[in-house]
């Protein structure tokens, strides 16, 4: 059984429907990447899964349970954490406070988890007392991911983790993502930087116009000439 299974998800904002019936799945231990042109509904799909956008029809099953009617707060408790593409930190709070907020639903002593995050992202330790709004773009992205990891999630949803980062940093971010995956966390990514993302992915989906187009393994998508021409920039 798949860890996450979204089937025929229809969702949108107000009167506009963005997703017309998208189905994806993530198995335990996998890195799965969703690629596709701008406005195809990649981010909306992420938001529909975590409960920020209402799922109109279709189902989202996480560990066998339908989560499509849950509030985001309940989804998070079930072990599914999400990092939005932008505005993904609390800028007026310190780095440490951001991490504490990430652990909001934990009732145990989570200080060791903060230390683990500082080990994973040493940059964050150095800026622990700094306002998060003053961090650099790369540090913010690390903090956003660390915040989501505070709950020891089973599945992590990352919306364009490399957006707006310098080329050198992009590589580091992907390294870290691979490292997180090695600790047993499954990942679902949306990426503009499709080539690099697919290279480390087990599987990938191509979304277009709010519908599934292609599903295949990461390397196969990379070598698919049509995908290459349309979505990977030749």
């Amino acid at each position: 059984m798949a860890l996450l299974e979204a089937s025929n998800v229809v969702a949108g904002y107000g009167e506009t429907e963005i997703l017309h019936g998208v189905s994806i799945s993530v198995n335990k231990g996998e890195i799965v990447t969703i690629i596709g042109p701008n406005g195809c509904g990649k981010s909306t799909l992420m938001k529909a899964i975590v409960g920020l956008v209402r799922v109109r029809t279709g189902a989202v099953r996480f560990r066998g349970v339908d989560i499509s009617r849950l509030e985001p707060e309940q989804t998070v408790r079930s072990g599914l954490c999400y990092v939005p593409q932008s505005d993904n930190i609390f800028p007026s709070m310190t780095t440490r406070e951001n991490l504490e907020m990430g652990a909001f639903v934990r009732r145990d002593d989570f200080r060791h988890r903060i230390d683990e995050m500082f080990e994973l992202f040493p940059d964050l330790k150095r800026s622990a007392r700094m306002k998060a709004g003053r961090l650099s773009g790369g540090q913010r992205q690390m903090l956003a991911i660390a915040r989501a990891l505070m709950l020891d999630p089973v599945l992590l949803l990352l919306d364009e983790p490399s957006a707006g980062l310098a080329p050198g940093l992009i590589h580091t971010v992907f390294e870290r993502i691979r490292g997180i995956n090695e600790t047993g966390v499954s990942l679902l990514l949306v990426e503009q930087n499709a080539r690099e993302s697919l290279r480390m992915s087990d599987r990938g989906y191509v979304l277009s116009g709010g519908d599934n187009q292609i599903e295949d393994s990461g390397p196969a998508l990379l070598n698919n000439p049509e995908v290459g021409r349309l979505y990977l920039g030749g």
């Binding site: 975590v50 920020l52 509030e71 985001p72 707060e73 989804t75 998070v76 408790r77 954490c81 999400y82 939005p84 505005d87 993904n88 930190i89 609390f90 800028p91 007026s92 709070m93 406070e97 504490e100 907020m101 990430g102 909001f104 639903v105 915040r147 709950l151």
Partner: peptide, 24 residues
């Protein structure tokens, strides 16, 4: 306090507070 920090977080970024699991 935890609730006080959660209030600041919600003020900073309400939708992120929601997906962080803060009891809004």
């Amino acid at each position: 306090t935890k609730i006080g920090k959660a209030m600041r977080a919600t003020s900073d970024n309400p939708s992120l507070a929601l997906v962080t699991g803060i009891n809004t």
